[in-house]
Design a protein around this nucleic acid. Structure first.
Length: 223
DNA sequence: CCAGACGTTGTT
DNA sequence: GTCTGG
DNA sequence: CCAGACGTTGTT
DNA sequence: GTCTGG
């Protein structure tokens, strides 16, 4: 799965990498938790790529508030087309979610040991995601843009760490994923665990557990 | 037709 | 908003 | 995802 | 145990 990640690419570099003409301002974040705002890449009204800020935790327009069990920060790739909360976004509102890498807690008995997973080539990665725009019910122009990260089964390479894994799209597939004309079967063909040798992981400090901690040491290897 | 749900993970 | 269940 | 809180009445 | 906040 993916319940915490890091995104520290500066706005200009992100806009350049993802081919967006404009971008908001945002600070590096080494400890992104659900409900926080993150930059995402989506197709705007003018059919161009845009970077916009979105709350992590999908909230469709018709849903009054987050489900009792918490914000929907992950969406299972296997059931995107049948789950009410995701099917429309899968058809019409796909996005990329830039990241340096993400955290995963391995369970060993009662202990939960945090690891950081990133690309072997150390390049920024892009999660496959969905987004929504919810208009506020009361007066005012308040709009909540929200997003979720798609998950899939882990590959054997990472099965020991965790049995679910976020979908990471290679650069060559970014345009296919974002393109509103791409058909569902082609889209689904992209939703798989990374190929062997693309990703790596290492143990990190328990400091990452606490959301208030936010510095470059969180992603660094220990032990 | 209307009413009611709409989620993931991990653990059992 | 849209699908499922009755 | 993990950490941390979890309450009311009356008075200021 | 369960909910809220980040």
């Amino acid at each position: 799965m993916c319940g915490r990640f890091a995104v520290t690419l500066p706005p200009e570099a992100m806009a350049s990498l993802f081919g967006s003409d404009d971008r908001p301002n945002f600070a590096p974040n080494y400890n992104v938790a659900p409900t926080q705002k993150v930059p995402i890449v989506a197709i705007g009204k003018e059919n161009t790529r845009r970077i916009i800020m979105a709350r992590w935790g999908l909230l469709p327009n018709w849903m009054e508030k987050d489900p009792e069990a918490g914000p929907m920060f992950n969406a299972r790739s296997e059931t995107l087309e049948v789950k009410q909360s995701f099917k429309t976004a899968f058809a019409k509102r796909r996005c990329l979610i830039p990241a340096d890498g993400f955290y995963e807690w391995k369970r060993e008995g009662k202990a939960r040991i945090p690891f950081f997973i990133s690309r072997v080539d150390a390049a920024p990665l892009a999660f496959a995601g969905l987004w929504e725009m919810k208009k506020s019910t009361n007066e005012g122009a308040e709009v909540l843009i929200s997003t979720t990260i798609i998950t899939t089964n882990s590959s054997p390479e990472f099965a020991n760490l965790h049995d679910r894994f976020p979908v990471i799209l290679e650069k060559a597939d970014w345009g296919i994923w974002l393109d509103g004309l791409t058909q569902a079967p082609r889209l689904k063909s992209l939703l798989h665990a990374p190929n062997n040798g693309v990703m790596r992981f290492h143990r990190v400090s328990d400091d990452v557990n606490k959301v208030a901690n936010n510095n470059e040491n969180l992603t660094k290897a220990i032990g």
